[in-house]
Every structure is written in C-alpha cells, then in structure tokens.
Design a protein around this nucleic acid. Sequence first.
DNA 1: GGCCCCAGGTTCGAATTTGAACCGTCGCGA
DNA 2: TCGCGACGGTTCAAATTCGAACCTGGGGCC
Lengths: 158, 158
Amino acid sequence: MTAPQWLNEEELRAWYAFVAAGALINRRLDQQLKDDVGITHLQYEILVRLDAAPDREMRMSALADALLNSKSGLTYQITQLEKAGLVTRRSCPSDPRAVYAVLTDAGRCMLEQAAPGHVAQVRKLLIDVLTPQQLATIADGLTEVTHRIQSSEADPAR
Amino acid sequence: MTAPQWLNEEELRAWYAFVAAGALINRRLDQQLKDDVGITHLQYEILVRLDAAPDREMRMSALADALLNSKSGLTYQITQLEKAGLVTRRSCPSDPRAVYAVLTDAGRCMLEQAAPGHVAQVRKLLIDVLTPQQLATIADGLTEVTHRIQSSEADPAR
DNA sequence: GGCCCCAGGTTCGAATTTGAACCGTCGCGA
DNA sequence: TCGCGACGGTTCAAATTCGAACCTGGGGCC
C-alpha cells in the first residue's frame, strides 16, 4: 500500500480555490437570477438547453444527462417550469415511454430577459477576472477532468 | 448601454468546463464519503476545519463563514454531527450568546478514517488529472476569483 | 439607569434534492 | 409468440437547504 498521498501546499491551494469559487459563484448566480427574473440557475440552464435544441425540445433523459442531474430532480423541475408556463411536456408518438420537454414562447421570452443579466454576472464573477491565458488553461484542464469522470461513470469496470 | 457581452467560444468552453467539473466532483465526493464512512462532504469539511482550529473548536459563525454556508444550515449540520457524537456544543463563558462547536475524540477518529479515501478521491478526480502548471494557474486564477467575490460581499457599495 | 439597535444562534415553514420503489413499454432471445 | 430484463419517467418519503422571523444578551447613547 502506498503511503497516503497528502496534498502538498500548492495542490491544497488549487483544491480550495476550486471548491470555494464553485460554491461562491453558484450562490451568486442563483441569487441574481432569482432576484432578476425569479428562476433558479438550474431552471435557467434547462431553458438554455431547450432553446439550443432542434425544435426547442429534448427528451427528459437527455436533458437530465446534459444537466448532470438526477432523473427525479428533472421531473420536479420540469413540473415547476410547466406550472410557470415556460415549458410543456409532449409525449413521443413513436415511443410512448418517452417524454419531450418543449420550450414555450413564454419560456423563450423569459430566457431573453434573463440571459443578459446572467451572462453579465458570469463575466463579472469569473471570466473578466481571468486572463485569456488562464481561461484557456482552465478550459483545457477542467474539460479533461469532466471527460475522465464521465467516462468512468459510463464504464462498468471503474 | 454597451451591447450585451456574449461569451465567445473559448469563454464558453471555460465556463461550462468549470460548472461541469464542479458539479461532477462534488457529487462524486459526496458519494464516496457516504459510502465509505457515512458523512457528507459538507460534514467532512466541518470536521476538517474544527480539527485544524486551536483546541479543535470554533464559533458557529466563524465556521459558517469558513464553509461559505448559511447560519441556519450550519446549525442543522452541527445538530446532525452532535447526534452522531462527532461534535459537541459548548457555550462561551465570556459571551453567553456565542456557541462553540467542539470536535470530539470520535470526531477526530472519524476524520482519520475518512481522510485518506477522501484525499485519494480528490487526487484521482482533479489533482492527478492536471499538470503542476495547470494546477498553479487554476490556483492563482480561482483564488483571485474568490477574493473578489468575498470582498464584494463585505462591501456595502457593491 | 433606560432605550434602542445590533450581533449570534436557533427555529420554522417552504422549496428543493435524493435515492429507492414503482409502472408501463420495448426489444431481444428462446 | 412468450418471457424477461432493461429503459424512460414518475412517485414517494426522507434529508437537506434556504430565508425570514424570532429570541437573547451586549453596548452605545441619552
């Protein structure tokens, strides 16, 4: 057994910065979106994905995957968004099991209202604080991180 | 009014990688700690902070600040940890309003059990995926990010 | 001293998240 | 064709989180 590989100072610094930045940014984004247009960051992301999808609709499970969220969590959120009139459900004719979430016009409108403020916040909190150099490094590194995690999720032999 | 500063491709890549990595890593850490020793990542962090503090105790509010968590959330978690015997509360003699959370021996023991697996997971998911170069860049960049956010929180004139 | 406001925690109810159990198809192999 | 395990979503109860309201004691100010 190898000795427990503690984190050295530099590693610890990176780790804590990563965790803290994630927590703080998430909180602020939620805050801003709720104050601004009354939806959460998660709901905003749902609208974004739907808007980007062909015909502005997606299968529940595809959406859940894209959002890295549990199936039941998505069911709940879609129900909320449906109550708010931003999204509707549509069942797939070819496969009665499948359900599509569809962005409504109101949802699109909401997205247009919400996007500028949200993007501005993302800029202010993260993007504009970093140099393009740093951004590129972060993008490369963390993309690799997410790829590895996701592939190990799919992989039965972890 | 400036035109809405959309994110360019590189910025978007960084942003999504950042969000995704944060979400995935958090989920995995929670998972691993719960499977392993039955506590959440948040609870683990509480134990870590207490263990690092002088006399292994901290004021509730200091702890809440350190964890970037709401006061009520901390109250809840400390109550849970107290039920589990990992922490006790102690009121401060000099100021009856203040409450200290104190790490118990059982808490210390739990921490010792949990730490190796947790650190290994952090390594596997993040640290070991990145080069020291990348780590340094991330540490620098995200430290700056958290500093700015935190200082703007304290600042009344945002 | 008496008043008022603030800081430190807790409590409360509402909203969200999670994981497990469930229900109705689908599609493949016997 | 039948059976059966896997898939796609939903439901449910339990745990957690959040924010606002609430207590209590401390200190400054008159």
